[in-house]
Design a protein around this nucleic acid. Sequence first.
DNA 1: CCTCTTGTTATACATCTGTATAATTCTGGA
DNA 2: TCCAGAATTATACAGATGTATAACAAGAGG
Lengths: 210, 210
Amino acid sequence: MSDLRRPYHRETVEQRRDALIQSALDLMAEGGPEAMTVRAIAARAGTTPGLIRHYFGTKDELIRCAFERFMGHMTQQSLSTIEPVVRDPVAALAAMICASLRPPVLDGERVRLWAGFLQMVQRHPAMRQTHAATYLGYRDRLQTLIEALPGKADPVVARQLAIACNAVIDGLWLEGATLPDDFAEDEVESIALAAISAILETPLIADRKI
Amino acid sequence: MSDLRRPYHRETVEQRRDALIQSALDLMAEGGPEAMTVRAIAARAGTTPGLIRHYFGTKDELIRCAFERFMGHMTQQSLSTIEPVVRDPVAALAAMICASLRPPVLDGERVRLWAGFLQMVQRHPAMRQTHAATYLGYRDRLQTLIEALPGKADPVVARQLAIACNAVIDGLWLEGATLPDDFAEDEVESIALAAISAILETPLIADRKI
DNA sequence: CCTCTTGTTATACATCTGTATAATTCTGGA
DNA sequence: TCCAGAATTATACAGATGTATAACAAGAGG
């Protein structure tokens, strides 16, 4: 009756935690929160449900860690592009916009993953804080670049401009990733650059692709 | 052992379907997809799970109907405001923007409800079509108003402007409803009006509140 | 008064869920 | 070599889940 016993295989702590977190994220992206069960997570990570308890104590804690990793990964991919041009705020703005609106950030599974977390964020206080911090961190980076533009030094107006630019990016990220067939190649980024150029009264040129 | 039998109570078809759909939407908004179980839906609607099968056949079909109602309700609340001023495209644009960025449309539970559906939309073809049609319907309404503006008659440029304006509205809807404490009273709508005025090179004045 | 149909409720059932606990396997030091 | 102790696997368990089916109630037509 009993199948073969799974061969005992030992891994480092980080490898195990990474594999479990990545499995949880993949399952959430593919099938929503209901697909992210402890058994499915463990199976995809090549282990058994007991390890989730061993490494995270509870499923909620694993989800919290997965969310933190997801948000960190997300900002890092959007913001790493501006480091080479951090001295030129116009180029940095364009790079930030373009990085946020092309793969791998612009991606349907990414949006669904984010949407799946959005409901948990409300209930779990720790997740809510991570969410707010990530959003405000991104927006502050925008605001800093805007304040370096000629005539936009006032932080009050720069804050409102940053909110508006952030909204353009978020909205286009959402629509471009959810309805990819409705947009031509590179259309999302070019619309973003045009709109934000108008909002900031500063012409932005598309960042060259990596 | 057996509790009291629930009193037999008869309702019209629409009342029953409405109650079940509304219960499903409420549960999704409050607790995400995992809270939306057949038993919870039936209990909140004041009936028993069997009626879901009787009126919808399966839970998936009830969810599909609930999503359709939600999207319809959403557009109706955003678009009904422009009918009184349909002759004046500038006023209609402002009314549409403001209606989309204040309660009851701008609401945290509304966003979570929408996010909860977003994952199912991908898998269920019928829901995907409803989603795309709703989005494109809203955007087309924007585009029609933009084409009526002086110097924006070209449909190609009007389409790109409509996409950008829609992104501003979507992004601010998301951020304003998710992080309400970070925005002052009416700040979201005023930022939207300023940004869209810049994008369209046309000054928009805030719609008076109803 | 009696069926017949339809709406409604209750129960049954197989499966899944998260977690707790037991059993097994390996490693590292005495 | 041998034995704690940790890492890993397997099993147990109570409860939830979607759906199918049965039991029941009420009104319509003859």
